[in-house]
């Protein structure tokens, strides 16, 4: 095949890509998964790409219902006295963990295109 045909093909591909890039911009922060710790021990890793809902029971009997949706994760409902974990809302960023102190639960999102070393809030 002649060289100029190849050049045409590549130019066409590049153009298609450029169009696709304009049509589908990159998301702000896409954490790919979240590690879930219970009292310091990793009990589960949840991919954030698919929606999910599950309940975690702490050794002291307390429960936290965790929801994953749209690349984010949060504690939807909990039996802890202060409900701070629910108050924290959604997290989709590495560096912003969701924490339920009374139940020893820590959710750490990880991965993502703009990882933060820490989050102040």
């Amino acid at each position: 095949m002649k060289t100029k045909h190849w050049i045409l093909i590549f130019a066409a591909v590049a153009l298609l890509c450029a169009v696709a890039i304009v049509l589908f911009p990159l998301p702000q922060q896409v954490a790919s998964a979240a590690d879930i710790y219970q009292n310091g021990i990793l009990i589960r890793t949840v991919p954030l790409g698919q929606d999910a809902r599950f309940t975690i029971t702490a050794p002291n009997g307390g429960t936290n219902t965790v929801a994953v949706s749209g690349g984010r994760i949060r504690v939807e409902q909990a039996t802890c006295p202060d409900g701070l974990c629910v108050n924290q809302g959604w997290s989709r960023t590495e560096g912003y963990p969701i924490v339920c102190l009374p139940h020893g639960l820590v959710i750490q999102p990880k991965g993502g295109d703009t990882p933060f070393d820490a989050v102040t809030n």
Binding site: A14, C17, A18, P47
Partner: peptide
């Protein structure tokens, strides 16, 4: 590996 189909959005960048 990451089970995040959303990553496909990077495809045009990667091709370029």
């Amino acid at each position: 590996l990451t089970r995040t189909p959303a990553l496909i959005v990077y495809l045009p960048w990667l091709i370029l």
